[in-house]
């Protein structure tokens, strides 16, 4: 697998949300608008790249039996970094995403890539893998957020398309997340098979 394939697999072939169904908690929780989805996706991307980078460097030095705890500590550190930096410099977005930022720690995508890829590969492929997976995750979250925002409030990225009175509120609420995700997965599956 070359670097290009390594990068692009995160978008379509092994998309974390639509294909692997990993990281469902933030996917369903924060995607009430496109901007929230994008913010969450980018925060996760940062954590993915950084943790993949560090783990690919140090994995040979970590004994097998303490592998998972070590990875978790490394991931949690980067999540805390994101949390603090966002609270300081983009407080509005930080407030919107709320508890889901600290919860990136338990996002299966991050630990999954650390365990399945970064700990077995060299530095550069690990970074590329993290970036690809993270951006694919961001793309999925943004798509889901845009769909929900469009149907729920008539806007996309806060740009009004149709009048808010005609929006279907259910899409902004929790049940709408499941509905929208289900139909998006169905469409992507259809496209993958075609």
């Amino acid at each position: 697998m070359n670097n290009m394939q390594n990068f692009t697999k995160g978008f379509f072939k092994e998309n974390a949300v639509f294909v692997l169904l990993l990281g469902m908690c933030p996917t369903l929780g924060v995607t009430s608008s496109a901007i929230n989805g994008l913010g969450m996706g980018l925060a996760t991307t940062f954590v993915l790249i950084m943790s993949n980078l560090v783990i690919s460097l140090v994995s040979t030095m970590i004994p097998d039996k303490v592998k998972i705890p070590s990875f978790i500590v490394i991931i949690a550190s980067f999540v805390t970094i994101v949390d603090l930096v966002m609270a300081g410099y983009v407080p509005a977005l930080h407030e919107q995403l709320g508890v889901f930022i600290p919860l990136i720690v338990v996002n299966c995508v991050v630990l999954g890539r650390a365990e399945a890829f970064a700990s077995k590969n060299k530095l550069v492929p690990s970074i590329i893998d993290g970036a690809g997976m993270g951006l694919g995750f961001s793309m999925a979250l943004t798509m889901l957020g845009a769909v929900r925002e469009f149907f729920g409030t008539g806007k996309v990225f806060d740009f009004p398309i149709f009048k808010e009175n005609y929006g279907m509120l259910v899409f902004v609420l929790a049940p709408g997340a499941f509905l929208a995700l289900g139909y998006l997965i169905a469409i992507i599956n259809r496209l993958r098979k075609a």
């Binding site: 929006g167 279907m168 509120l169 259910v170 899409f171 609420l173 049940p175």
Partner: peptide, 8 residues
């Protein structure tokens, strides 16, 4: 129920 939640 969809309508009830969407257009209360």
């Amino acid at each position: 129920v969809f309508l009830l939640i969407s257009f209360p």
